[in-house]
Design a protein around this nucleic acid. Structure first.
Length: 196
DNA sequence: CTTCAGATGCTCT
DNA sequence: GAGCATCTGAAGA
């Protein structure tokens, strides 16, 4: 299974957000392979989207990564304590990205459980197992992703994406989460997810 | 199951 | 100084 190429990311952001569902996010960490199947994404498009950090091509220290070539990882700190993982999309210079909102653990579950809860998988409560990596902050905590990886090229280790290894299930879509401040853009149906 | 408050620090005005 | 692409634990229904 080959790593997704730059062509994959160098497309319309909504298309990439949908095509990422079911793909495998791979994080190599301390000699282990942590793998999660992507189950939920959101699109952010600077050209026309008030919820995007780079709305109207706004260029600051933080948003600089969004102007990088497609297939670049954009990670930032949110609410003072959580990290969000995004993949830069569209031709270079168009600031846009897909936020990874949720994954399902596929490989390296023991390491992920330790990273996320400081426990072994067998010690998790039912609630912790059900809500293992189903949020953008949880994905980053469980897969050891922090801002040191901001600007990383997703075509190379230690962080990359593999194509689907099975048929894509039905895709749902709806409004994005946590963007109520974004006026008309808050209702854009740019969140996509699949059932497990 | 639900709501709710609080944690915590970086970024931009 | 204000606001934020979130999460958790506690408390109530």
């Amino acid at each position: 299974m080959e790593i997704l190429t730059r062509d994959f990311y160098d497309r319309d952001t909504l298309t990439v957000a949908k095509d990422l569902l079911g793909c495998l996010l791979v994080r190599e960490y301390e000699g282990e392979r942590l793998v999660g199947r992507i189950t939920e994404t959101e699109a952010y498009i600077g050209r026309c989207d008030k919820a995007c950090h780079a709305y109207q091509y706004k260029r600051t220290n933080r948003t600089e990564t969004l102007f990088a070539q497609p297939g670049t990882a954009y990670l930032y700190l949110i609410y003072g304590m959580y990290t969000c993982l995004n993949f830069v999309t569209e031709p270079e210079g168009e600031p846009a990205a897909v936020l990874i909102r949720g994954v399902e653990a596929v490989e390296g579950e023991a390491a992920m459980a330790r990273l996320r809860f400081g426990k072994e998988p067998g010690e998790l409560t039912a609630y912790q197992r059900k809500n293992f990596l189903n949020g953008p902050g949880k994905v980053c905590k469980g897969m050891a992703l922090d801002r040191k990886l901001n600007g990383h090229d997703l075509l190379t280790p230690p962080l990359y994406v593999l194509p689907r290894d099975r048929e894509a299930p039905a895709i749902h879509c709806g409004p994005r989460i946590g963007v109520d401040y974004a006026q008309e853009a808050k209702d854009f149906p740019w969140r996509f997810w699949v059932d497990l």
